[in-house]
Structures are given as structure tokens and as C-alpha cells.
Design a protein around this nucleic acid. Structure first.
Length: 195
DNA sequence: GTAGGGCTATCC
DNA sequence: GGATAGCCCTAC
């Protein structure tokens, strides 16, 4: 176990942390604040460091301007009305009728159920929901933040993935490494080198 | 229920 | 023509 000096406060953005303990349900799941605290207790043997609180809203500037602002698309960017879009459906889809050539990857065209761009308000709710419940709890996030919305849990997952991509965050196995570095950097570079 | 990849339309 | 957004399919 590493030994370091305790600090008064550690600022961590739970929304951008990977799972340092490789906890279930998957390696790409971002931990809840309580899990991060568990991790600190694990690494520092329950005594060396104590997390007083998680900084959700910095006092010096609005939280949305600092973090959400990086995730929310710019105004008037791909926000125009969309023409009706279609996509292919396959025999496994209950709405599919008719035969499809054997081995073909082409299905029949069907109009999409929903075709709208995400609004700023929706993105804000999504990010707030992720910070509250963590990444990977899409059904719970849907029921609490999008109960009356056409967005289903899969859509929430997809939008979160797009937000991370737009921010330059890898969505593959590299995420764990990238976020671990952010995690340690939040402690301080000096302490990171001593871990 | 969720993650990852595929597909289509749109933007630049 | 490549990159991106959003929805859908499929495996686990």
C-alpha cells in the first residue's frame, strides 16, 4: 500500500471517472462517488486519506459553464429541422414483412420512430443523471429524468457515447487508462508519482 | 439491461 | 468524401 500525506480536499468529477476497482457490471462503468471513496479507503488503507466531500458545484464559477459546457453542442449547430429519415429493418424485427434474399444484409426501409436532434435541455438532464446515478444505469436514469420522453435507455447510452466522443474520450478499452490518469491527476501529480 | 457495432442522413 | 449524430440490431 502506498503511503502519502492526507489532504484536506480532493476535487473529483465523478462523471468522468472510470472504474478503478474493476467493479461490475463492466470495466467501462463510471463509479459513483461512494465507490470512489471506497477506492481511496482501499488504496490508502482506510487511514492515510479522507475524502470530505465531492465538489459538485465549484464556488467560483457555475458548474454548467465549467463541465456541461464542454459536452453541450454549440447553439445552432446541427439543430435545424430534419427530414423524415428511414432505416433498414430485418426479418428479426416484428414489423418486418416479406422475404429477404438469403445472406443479404439489406432489409426493408422503415421510417424511424424518432428523428429529432437532442436539445440542450435534454443533454443537461442526461449529464446530471449520469452524475447522479453513474454511467451504465440507463434504465434508472430514464425513469427519473426522461420518464415522459421518447428517449429510451439505449438512446441515453448512445447520446452519452456521442458526447464523450465529441470530447475526445475514447469509448473502447483505452478509456480505463485515460480516466485512471485523470483520476490520479486529480489528487496531484506529486502524489501520483508516489503511488 | 447493457455494450458495441452497423446503418442512414446530414454536415462540412 | 470523411466525420458526425442518432437510431437500431445483436450478443452477452
Amino acid at each position: 500500500m502506498p503511503t502519502i500525506e492526507p489532504v484536506d480536499e480532493v476535487e473529483i468529477w465523478a462523471s468522468i471517472l472510470a472504474d478503478p476497482l474493476h467493479r461490475p457490471p463492466s470495466s467501462s462503468t463510471i463509479p459513483l462517488p461512494s465507490q470512489v471513496e471506497d477506492y481511496f479507503n482501499y488504496v490508502y488503507n482506510n487511514y492515510a486519506m479522507k475524502i470530505d466531500h465531492f465538489v459538485a458545484e465549484p464556488q467560483d464559477e457555475p458548474w454548467r459553464g465549467r463541465y456541461l459546457g464542454e459536452l453541450i453542442p454549440k447553439e445552432n449547430w446541427r439543430r435545424g429541422p430534419r427530414v423524415p429519415r428511414k432505416r433498414r429493418i430485418f426479418p428479426s424485427n416484428p414489423t418486418y414483412f416479406g422475404d429477404m434474399p438469403s445472406g443479404s444484409r439489406c432489409g426493408k426501409l422503415q421510417r424511424r420512430i424518432n428523428n429529432d436532434h437532442w436539445t440542450n435541455g435534454e443533454v443537461i438532464k442526461l449529464v446530471e443523471g449520469v452524475e447522479t446515478y453513474g454511467v451504465g444505469r440507463w434504465t434508472k436514469l430514464k425513469s427519473h429524468y426522461f420518464s415522459k420522453s421518447v428517449r429510451d435507455p439505449t438512446h441515453l447510452k448512445d447520446k452519452w457515447r456521442n458526447l464523450l466522443r465529441a470530447r475526445g474520450v475514447p469509448c473502447n478499452s483505452e478509456r480505463k487508462v485515460v480516466f485512471s490518469l485523470i483520476f490520479y491527476t486529480a489528487i496531484s501529480l506529486d502524489q501520483f508519482h508516489r503511488i
